[in-house]
Write a protein that binds this DNA or RNA. Structure first.
Lengths: 216, 216
DNA sequence: ATAATTTTTTAGATAAGGCTAAAATTTTTT
DNA sequence: AAAAAATTTTAGCCTTATCTAAAAAATTAT
């Protein structure tokens, strides 16, 4: 059994490995968890003893098969709860994250199995992220950043790279949501900003925005 | 904001006050929480500073208005989650307690408001206990222990005094559930055991059992 | 009313998880 | 290849919530 803190470390390392591959540095974990590197060193020693990750001094960590399964399960819970909040309790996609961060730590296998049934075995959460199954497997959809789309080409919004309330509210304000068509009208080479057609309206978005929207 | 531990103290004191009135002893809290009296002394000092209870050395504690509201809200959350588990996720009444003990500590006013809506504003949990509203008020139904019912009289089961899985499974096994008619056929004065008619069957139950069943 | 018992509090210790500051190691620069 | 910089670890301390053992107060019994 893992403590709340241990679970948060596992989840962070899992997400970091998804981006950077194996060998996650102490500092990057500290940044992700908004804590200090010295605290991370302490915790990863403990997690290494619990066989969920491999740690060699000064060389970062990698999840073991056990650790990855454990982490995927926390992510599974987080995303199922997000679906519940949006589909059943009238939450909007920018309100779910903090609550799901709490709910993901509830320990009850039956609860999560039944929730899955109740929600109709969803495969995606409200932000377009895949929901792992009990073994930690999930369908990986091909997607690319909106920022990589060429002028005059069209894509469909299938996900976001940032689930912060601020970013999602910005998207809402501009009628950008999952499933929407987005056409790139022009690209400013100086700062990478895009003028796009969304919801039959022309708007200009910064590179930072287009770097956080996934299309298909 | 209160810690998980603080919330559990508040809830326990709230339940103890409901039975014994004001002035709850250190020892009784320790017993309820399965901890030591010295730990209780430390915690109630902290809670007194936070203005949720009044404490005078060697004289036990009483919840303040603030403390009672806080505690009622935790009970409200616990019972709403129990309804959710039974009504929506196919839990039986003997499986909900431990999970609800965890869920009751999730912090999100919107979550509990929306859950209340989603469940149709239930007034009772699966064990027949009332669900307080946001102000901590609830309808008190008149009920008495089955052990106080006279011979040849009939009552309707409206609640239980013990929500442990073992007790509830015993009730299931004997077809005793909320809303069921129970007739006392005879009373053994030696040990207080009762022979009752339930679900058109005659069974004999101990005093301990009849002391944990509420009827109306 | 004093002695015995029970309850409650205090004092000091422990474990988890975090911090700062300093030391050790690795990486980057010159 | 050495020096500088960045990263990581260690050492020691803090807080929260516990505990045990001993002291203090209240209650009960004689």
């Amino acid at each position: 059994m893992f403590s709340l803190s241990e679970e948060n470390y596992l989840k962070s390392i899992y997400h970091l490995e998804a981006i950077h591959g194996k060998g996650i540095s102490t500092n990057s974990i500290a940044k992700k968890l908004e804590t200090k590197a010295s605290s991370v060193t302490d915790m990863i020693k403990k997690l290494a003893e619990k066989k969920v990750l491999v740690y060699k001094k000064y060389q970062g960590v990698s999840l073991t098969v056990l650790g990855r399964k454990e982490a995927a399960n926390i992510v599974r819970k987080h995303r199922l709860w997000e679906v519940f909040l949006v589909d059943k309790l009238n939450f909007s996609w920018d309100e779910v994250h903090d609550v799901a961060e709490q709910l993901e730590h509830i320990k009850s296998p039956k609860l999560i199995d039944e929730l899955d049934v109740f929600l109709g075995f969803p495969k995606m959460d409200p932000h377009g992220d895949p929901i792992p199954d009990k073994e930690g497997n999930f369908q990986k959809i091909e997607k690319r950043l909106l920022s990589t789309l060429e002028e005059n080409k069209t894509g469909i919004c299938v996900g976001v790279n940032d689930s912060s309330s601020d970013f999602l509210k910005y998207l809402d304000k501009n009628n950008i949501s999952l499933g929407k068509k987005i056409k790139v009208l022009s690209k400013e080479s100086f700062d990478g900003s895009l003028t796009i057609l969304i919801h039959s309206k022309e708007i200009t978005i910064s590179k930072k925005i287009s770097n956080n929207i996934y299309i298909q």
